[in-house]
Simulated scan of single mutants.
Amino acid sequence: MTAPALYRTRIRHVRRTPLRHAFTYRGLSWFVDLDDLPRLPVWLRPFARFDGRDHFAGEPSLRAGLDEVLADAGVDPTGWRVTALLAPRAFGYVFNPLSLYWCHDDTGAVRCVVAEVHNTYGGRHPYVLFPDADGRVETEKVFYVSPFNPVEGRYTLQVPEPGTQLAVSVTLHRDGHRPFVASMHGKRTPVTTVRVAGAVLRVPLAPQLVAARIRIQGVVLWLRGLPVVPRRTVPSQQLEASR
């Protein structure tokens, strides 16, 4: 099993076209083993709780939801160990713009990575990826995320499994340009009751704050005249699967 860890992160979003806009904010991510999730003291659980219903198709456990996604992609994860980088639910609310899952076979090698993207409309979509040895991979964009970007283009992701340092990036490519780049960096610290309590005291409503910051930046872009790209109608079956 992998010991849980915390990463105090620096997250940066850069929009290059059709107008230039960038912002940076701080966050907190957990690195956990899906088969050995952290057991916090009762008084801390309202501030940090992992619930499978917040991910994938809403299975009771995170591992069950991930296994279903892999099976749908033709991957058999039986006997695999899975580590994940994600944010927990706090006071009944959770928002994970990007959750990452590293799937290790029985030799310990990373066989694939699942990148689960959440948008501010309550939708989520998993990308099953097969990165190279450096954690680099490309995939088509198929999910509506930002109201200012159409569902077109390709992503380049750098998703090496974090160690002492966390360094993840996502670059959108479209029409020979890179209109959007997001990156997340952080330093690893072990999970202890004192550290978790300290993080809660500094930012007691972390997921609510992240969602608010993203929405505020959206309003800023809209006020600057960036046109909104309408969402396509989602079939009812797909909508149910994303909840």
Rank of each mutant, 00 (worst) to 15 (best):
G65D: 00
H177G: 06
R111C: 11
P88S: 03
H173E: 10
P179K: 02
D134P: 06
R124C: 04
V110L: 12
P227D: 07
R178P: 06
H118D: 06
L44Q: 05
S242M: 15
Q237N: 12
Y7W: 03
L201Y: 04
F56E: 04
N96C: 05
L62S: 00
T156K: 11
C103S: 11
D175E: 14
R26E: 09
G225L: 11
R243H: 15
M184D: 02
S169C: 08
V168E: 12
W80Q: 11
S236M: 09
Q158L: 13
S61T: 15
I11S: 05
R39Y: 11
V194M: 12
V42Y: 04
V196F: 04
L19S: 06
A109W: 14
P46D: 03
V145M: 12
R45T: 10
P190A: 04
R16T: 08
V181H: 13
V219N: 00
V170E: 10
T193I: 06
T83F: 06
I216L: 14
P147A: 08
L28R: 02
P60G: 00
S146C: 02
T107W: 13
P131S: 03
Y155V: 10
R20C: 01
Y93K: 05
A115Q: 09
D175L: 09
R231I: 02
E152W: 00
Y127Q: 12
V194P: 00
R213M: 09
L172C: 00
K187F: 12
